[in-house]
Design a protein around this nucleic acid. Structure first.
Lengths: 380, 380
DNA sequence: CACAACACTGAATCTGACT
DNA sequence: AAGTCAGATTCAGTGTTGT
């Protein structure tokens, strides 16, 4: 039946391990004028690190609707046509998502923003096309437009979906940078940010240049979270170029696609004026995972810790002896610092670096401090 | 093509103009044991004023998840949350929504709660079946479970969809009650509420009676917003009966459908004990007023402070550079404004907001003044 | 009895490099 | 492809135990 065929897309597991894809050379920091599906179709496979998309919320904004046959949808005001309109929107969504998926690298990720009018169609299409949703993010507007009629709740948020290429795909997530940005607490899925206004809001002849210009702070957080300096960011619905301006500022490369001449003009001026940050300001907090690894045995070899030293846990409940090969001995048993910590506690795993302590200057210090000392002294 | 067939369901226009339907007599304040689709099928047309539904989320969890301290996360692994494919989940969703639509009065409305795993499927199905989405509501959890592995953003919210029978359908919305509840400000589409725990969390033999019990405050707000006293509220996924307990308290009639005996037992006891229209019920709505906390990183994101800016202490003894992620860099060391302030002074802690200063109009001002400026401009 | 310290818990799609 | 193992990772709140 039709429904099953539609959703039973086999999950691509292509990114389960490092993929050696030759990244094609493409022109970046450029704006492509015209239809986004056609332009994406002209790009090679696996060339984009991140896609940020702010697709039209309804079909009026979308201009010509996409139809496989190439026909054009007329706006007819009856119920049947509204269903046809949902179907058209779905076809349009699937068409651009399919191209997006093809040009996105195996370890890239995609962001799409929308409101309740379209975000459920977009989310469903993302899943149906094989993307794997990582988070839905709520942009909570700190100063939304009130609901003047008092007929509903004030619509005070928009929704972003963040997805990878598949369940087992890798993706970039600068965890520590996000945690730092949020005063040392994990960044949550709800982001409080003001709407775009004041000096930032672009105007032409006194009126706003674009009806739904996104705040740069939103793109800033997205890019800081999910890209590295030098990554290529594509925005298929470029509008007035918020994505390009932030990419330039953050030292990322960008490609924008836009069909409206009036937006293009504004976008190019704007990006031209944006100032890139210098490299030192772009440095972000690294997670421990990203730091160079030091084997425990290295500390023994290099004399930071002598064989025969007695290690204990913080409460001195267990004792272990360091051996010359970097293993720990407890009674007749022995193994790595992690394995012994886990075994003694009966735990499934254990970080030996923080579990085991040594006596130094009358204090009990985790052996992790020795590793830090070693790293400082031996940094490249 | 399959998609068109799927969405081209003829829409019932029954709600386009005032409808004089004889409301059928049905038994209320009762729990129906068994499958929700079968039980809904046995109810007459147009007999329900509001539906609140908390369907399975289809979580698709992997293996066990362990906390950093070693404990195992007690995950949802119930059979009722398992579906073979997205397609089978969609068929299930459409089947219960279709019955729900039939038994819901023309001027009734429906609420469905979910997470990113299922809410996009649900929203799409609602629209395809002809429901008209009025709002999507974000339940922002004040105390969500963290992301233990640091792999994504903390999943700190769930989404509710509120929909009427059609674009021109009337529906109940107690605007003034919501405004009063929100300190005379329009109720927004994002609600901050704690998860269900403590005394409210129902237990059997010392363990939670239901893995996903919803807080009464959530149902309280939904019912207060969208029903009148005496209205009939149906919950097709009744669980431990939060909907029934709140309905009784607020003087609404309720019908619950549930197939798990263990939940039914708990639900009946609970509703029996609930007091109708108790004055104390109002206290559950006194949600913690969220103090406007601003992270230092927000000032960087929103352009109040540019990356690369040099901060100093009041006496200009130390200098630090602001980086893109809101961290401060001093030499090779870096960290949050608080941590770096403490480190440099050799103090156990430090209030970075008052310690660090920036140059503005020839004066050295604490960065706390920037925070005040931000709050003035962006407070709702 | 007060208070501090510790233990436990919540709708979670929760590692990665190497063999 | 599956197995092995090093080792990184948590927030707000409730309830219990210990001093």
């Amino acid at each position: 039946m039709g429904l099953m065929e539609r959703v039973a897309v086999p999950r691509r597991k292509k990114a389960a391990r490092p993929v050696e894809v030759e990244a094609a050379k493409i022109a970046t920091d450029t704006l492509l004028r015209g239809d986004c599906i056609a332009h994406m179709a002209s790009l090679p496979d696996n060339c984009i690190d991140m896609i940020f998309a702010d697709p039209p919320y309804n079909l009026q904004l979308g201009g010509d609707l996409y139809r496989p046959e190439g026909g054009r949808v007329d706006a007819v005001d009856n119920d049947w046509d509204k269903f046809d309109t949902l179907g058209s929107y779905d076809r349009f969504t699937k068409a651009w998502l399919r191209e997006a998926r093809r040009i996105l690298k195996p370890n890239g990720s995609i962001w799409v923003i929308g409101s309740y009018h379209n975000i459920f169609r977009v989310g469903t299409a993302l899943q149906d096309e094989g993307f794997w949703i990582l988070n839905d993010i709520i942009w909570r507007k700190s100063n939304p437009m009130p609901n003047f009629k008092g007929t509903r709740f004030t619509n005070a948020h928009e929704t972003l979906i963040w997805a990878s290429q598949g369940e087992d795909a890798k993706y970039t997530f600068n965890y520590k940078a996000m945690k730092t940005l949020n005063d040392e607490l994990q960044m949550r899925s709800d982001w409080v940010l003001p709407i775009c206004g004041g000096q930032e809001r672009l105007k032409r002849n006194g009126t706003k240049a674009h009806p739904t210009q996104k705040p740069e702070a939103l793109l800033y957080r997205v890019m800081l979270a999910c890209t590295k300096p030098g990554d290529v960011v594509l925005d298929p619905f470029f509008g007035t170029g918020t994505t390009g301006a932030v990419a330039k500022r953050l030292g990322r490369k960008w490609i924008g696609i836009e069909r409206e001449d009036s937006y293009i003009e504004v976008a190019l001026e704007r990006i031209e004026a944006a100032l890139p940050l210098d490299e030192s300001a772009l440095t972000i907090m690294q997670t421990a995972r990203q730091q160079p690894k030091v084997a425990f045995g290295t500390l023994v070899e290099t004399g930071y810790l002598a064989p025969g030293t007695i290690l204990t846990d913080a409460r001195r409940r267990w004792r272990a002896e360091v051996r010359a090969d970097g293993s720990l001995a407890v009674g007749t048993d022995s193994g790595s610092i992690h394995k012994m910590g886990a075994t003694l506690q009966g735990a499934p795993s254990c970080n030996g670096w923080t579990f085991w302590h040594h006596e130094a200057e009358g204090k009990l210090l985790p052996i992790d401090t020795l590793r830090q000392t070693y790293l400082l002294a031996n940094e490249p």
